[in-house]
Every structure is written in structure tokens, then in C-alpha cells.
Design a protein around this nucleic acid. Structure first.
Lengths: 298, 298
DNA sequence: TTATTCCGTTAGAAATCCTAACAGGTACAG
DNA sequence: CTGTACCTGTTAGGATTTCTAACGGAATAA
């Protein structure tokens, strides 16, 4: 049981705010005795005294002050729930989203139609970027980033782990050349994004010593390798997220099962005050939902 | 009754997160029927359907998604309460506070000893400033500002309204000259901060047409006028907050009752994530407390 | 089709919460 | 000092809420 008793917490917040059990009872439409009992329940549950009783007045202890601020803001945010619903059509307007170019170009664009269908009045402004400065910016509602989850001062949530594996176009396998074991890779162009580190790590993980360096083509980024791969140029190492749609559609296939897990995972990063912008909050929920119901690929 | 039923909200949050009443029941150690009933209570209370029931599975409605994000974050912050207490000595470290120079120089410095006594392990770094950029900065925990309360995207709380009235040193009244009616002001130096607008507005409010312009001394800011006033130089228009301590000590007196309410009030401005820094949260509570128990001056 | 799984809905049991009444401490006025 | 007013604490027992247990129905998969 991790949450403190919520009704006792409400009694505490009211009593601490008004500085009186009797007044708190008036506000909550109960007797002072009920407040007294609720606060004792909370004190027992937390194992600390929250008020010093002076006979005819009360005083917050240090511990009481420490948790009052949290209780106050937490309950205040819950108070917004009925208000949000009363406004009705809050899920509209523009949501500003910063996402890595590869993610924005593949996974996200393939899902946009579904997003629009679910939230017809919401418009997305996508910023393709890996810049961490946008995480700190007040102008950006939501950031999607690859990393280790260490973004201090922000709410960070894991969306998905990332696995890398070789993929190629099915047409490539109809050219007569076989691609049944990793050794067969020697017959095909190897498509590298950036510096080719992803291939080094994959080849290393399956114990292959040949680094295929004389077959490598460097295409600059993952977006380009995936595109070249789809059009039958060669074999690329693709991430589980970017390739998911193409694998499902049959536009790409995985010649081998072997994959390597990257040290970076995909995270969604938001400010705490995102809840005040219902459209952005709904978008966060949409992302969480999409990745929760997606079958994990490795 | 403004808050939705809290235990029902917890059931909803769990069910929405797990996508199942049965699993939510497992997590909360109750049967699925209990969850079902709690969620119906919440739906009745809010007047909207939160889930679409499909017979053997559930799906969040738009309204359900809209409030899930708020409920999730609100309850999550309440979960921190037991953790904060477990750590025990969280009320320590440095709190960075930006406050207007006049406020920092008078009210705050007079209260620092009391603050230190209450929180011996807390150190304050005071930035005397009126710059609104600090309100947006992540490096500043708490901002105190005069204004109208319009600081979007931040938690803003009124600390006190501000009244302006003439004050002078008691010694000034022992020089033989009398100061019993506003007309007697002609015999004394008039101390103006900045552009002297405060005197214009006060003189206007009591219907005095003479603006005493040939007696005015311009000292640059309110800090200087108050100091000069304490040392018997003349009569200054002082704010209710800055002068409170000196009035109480008898170092300053109010020759007349008339005061004028300023359009700006004193606010305390924080980010939503201040709760994660217990020392800063305690400091906010300390400010709120100080101004709540202070007798209003006008 | 059957088996399975999950949700809905009851009645009644269990747990919780609240009230009412009295006791005791503090503050302040007379 | 005494009396009054105003708090809070603490009970027992009643009122209310919440949960369980058991059954029925809808969707899903084999």
C-alpha cells in the first residue's frame, strides 16, 4: 500500500490550510471529531505526528509542513478534473512535439492518420530534433527522445526499449542470392547510418569477426538507410520502432532472428504542468497507449 | 463538494493504467466488482462515461483519457508523501529565492533569523531582482514579485495586498515642527523613490492639489527612502510590507491614517515541480504562513 | 460448438466513517 | 481567581460506504 489514505489526506489538507479542526469540519460538512479521527489515522499510517495539539489550537509540526505542500498541490490538481470535463471540448488546439527525425519520419508519420481520427480537433506541430534544449523549453509540450531516462526536473516515462536487427526488402531475396545465415551477408551491400557503429555492435553480438567493411555504404542517418533498404539496395540494421510498420506490411523482412538491444531506450518527456493543457495531456496518453498495446519486438 | 471521490479516483487510475478492472482489483487487493462499483460512482459523480464496456474488455472514452493524465499525476505526487517522510531530513540544502530588492532588504532580512531557527539546515540564496526572466528559470526555486498575478504556466499565490502611506522617524516630530494634517507636509522634505508616482497617487487620493514638488528629493528606490526616513531626513511613502517591522519597533510612525491601495499586490510564484524539492516546498509554506498570520495593515 | 476470460449486478457482510456527548486544556474578561 | 468561550481528544454506537461472493452475459479463441 503506497498511497496514504486519501480521505484522511483531504482532512489533513483542509485542517492545515484553515489551522483548525473545527473549521475544517465545517468546510467538509462533518464534525470536528471526524477530522480529529481522520488526522489520527493519517498520523498512524505515516508514523509521524502532523500537528502539535495545544488544547485550544493546533500547530503544524515540521513533518506536517513538509507534506502539506505536496498534499495541497496534489489535491488541487485533482480538483481540476470536474472543471476539465465541464469545459467539454478541451481536446483541441495545437500540440508542439519534438521528436528525433527518424522517429518522426517513420513511426510517427505512419500513426498520424489514426491520431487525427481519434482527436480531430488537435493539430500537431512536429519538430524533428534531438536537441536537449527543447526539453527545457516552455514552448515545447512534449519531447520524444532516445536516451537513458536521465532528464532531471522533468516527468520522464519509458515508451519502449529498442532492438536493432538486420532488415532487407523481400525483393532483394528474389535475386537468386541466398541470405540464410549471417555469413551470406558478404554477398550484399551493407547500409550504415552515420558511422556504422550499429553494425559493429550487432556483428560483435553474434560473434562474427568479419566487419564487412568493404561492403559498407554510409548514408548519413537511419532515415536514409531504411528508405534505401525498402527499395532493395541492400541490408540495413534497423530499430524495432522504425521498422515495425514496414515489417507488418511486408515491405521489409528480417532474414535472421538475432537482435541486439541498444543502451538507449525511447522516452517521452514532459513538464509537470502539462496537465493544464488538455490537448497535450491527451497526446501523452495517446503515445503511452500506442506503445502499451504494441507487441514488443526483439 | 469540489473534489471527486478520491477512492473512486484511485480505482479509476489503476483500471485505466492496467486496462482491466480485474487487474486493477488485484493491484488494490479487492475484487473486480469493487472496482466496477467505484468506477460507476466516479462516472455518476462526474456525469460522464469513462470507459466503454465491451463485455470482456474495456476502453477509455475521450473523457476518460482527458482526466486520466491528471488523476495519474495527481495521485503520483501524493505517493511521494510517505517517501519524503522516510528520508527524514529532507528539509536541508540551498533554496534559491528571487525577490524585489526592497522586499529582500526589509521584510525578508528581518525575518531571516526566525526562518533559520525554524529550518536550521536550510540555506537561502537571495537574488534581489524584479526580472521576470527568473520566473521562467529552472535555476530559481521561488520568486516573490509585485504584480497582478498574471504569470502564465506557473503556480501563483497571493501573499498580501499592498498599501502605501506616509511614514517618518519619531525624532522628526520632536524638532518643534508639527505634522498633524497633510497640509503640514509643506514643512518637511518629501522622499520619493524612483519617479515619485507614489506621492502623486497618495496626494490625489486625499484630494490635495499641491504636489509638494519643490520639497521632493528623489532617492532612486524604496530601499533608500525608507533608510533616509528612519534616520530622520523627511517623510516617505512606504509600503505596508516594507514598513511593518519598523512601525512595530517604533522606528517609524504614521503621522496620518490615510493610505492608498496599490494596483500591484505581492505574489509568490513557483513551478509545479517544486514539491520534489522539500526544502523549497517548506520555504513556500513558511512564506504563506508568515503572511497568513500577519495582521493586515492599511 | 465449448472453454475461457472478463465485466455487470446483486444481496448481505464487513469495514469505515461519522455523530453525539462529555472531558480537558487554554485564553481571556471580569 | 472565577467564569465563559472556544478549542481539541476520546469514546460508543449508529449511519454509511465499501467489499465480497455468486451468478449471468458478452466477447474471443480454438
Amino acid at each position: 500500500m503506497r498511497l496514504p489514505p486519501l480521505n484522511a489526506l483531504r482532512a489533513f489538507e483542509t485542517a492545515a490550510r484553515l489551522g483548525s479542526f473545527t473549521l475544517a469540519g465545517k468546510e467538509l460538512h462533518v464534525t470536528h471529531g471526524a477530522i480529529s479521527q481522520q488526522i489520527r489515522i493519517l498520523e498512524t499510517s505515516l508514523g509521524v505526528m502532523l500537528f502539535i495539539r495545544h488544547g485550544n489550537r493546533i500547530e503544524l509540526t515540521m513533518e506536517g509542513m513538509a507534506i502539506y505542500e505536496i498534499a495541497r498541490r496534489g489535491l488541487k490538481s485533482l480538483e481540476e478534473i470536474p472543471q476539465i470535463l465541464r469545459q467539454g471540448d478541451m481536446i483541441k488546439g495545437e500540440v508542439i512535439l519534438s521528436a528525433p527525425p527518424g522517429f518522426a519520419g517513420h513511426w510517427l508519420t505512419h500513426q498520424l492518420a489514426g491520431f487525427h481520427k481519434q482527436y480531430p480537433d488537435l493539430r500537431l506541430r512536429v519538430i524533428p530534433s534531438n536537441d536537449d534544449r527543447e526539453i527545457q523549453s516552455r514552448d515545447v509540450d512534449i519531447c520524444i527522445r532516445y536516451g537513458n531516462g536521465a532528464w532531471p526536473g522533468r516527468t520522464v516515462e519509458l515508451l519502449s526499449d529498442i532492438y536493432l536487427f538486420p532488415v532487407c526488402s523481400p525483393q532483394l531475396l528474389e535475386t537468386g542470392k541466398t541470405l540464410e545465415t549471417p555469413a551470406d551477408l558478404r554477398q550484399f551491400p551493407i547500409l550504415c547510418a552515420d558511422d556504422g557503429y550499429e553494425w559493429d555492435s550487432w556483428l560483435g553480438s553474434i560473434g562474427m569477426t568479419d566487419d564487412l567493411s568493404d561492403q559498407r555504404h554510409y548514408l548519413g542517418n537511419a532515415l536514409n538507410t531504411t528508405e534505401a533498404c525498402r527499395y532493395g539496395f541492400g541490408v540495413a540494421l534497423c530499430g524495432s520502432i522504425s521498422s515495425a510498420h514496414y515489417l507488418q506490411q511486408g515491405q521489409l523482412v528480417r532474414p535472421f532472428r538475432q537482435s541486439v538491444r541498444t543502451s538507449n531506450s525511447l522516452f517521452i518527456i514532459t513538464r509537470d504542468d502539462i496537465v493544464h493543457k488538455a490537448g497535450a495531456a491527451a497526446t501523452v496518453g495517446w503515445f503511452r497507449n500506442k506503445f502499451a498495446q504494441q507487441v514488443p519486438v526483439d
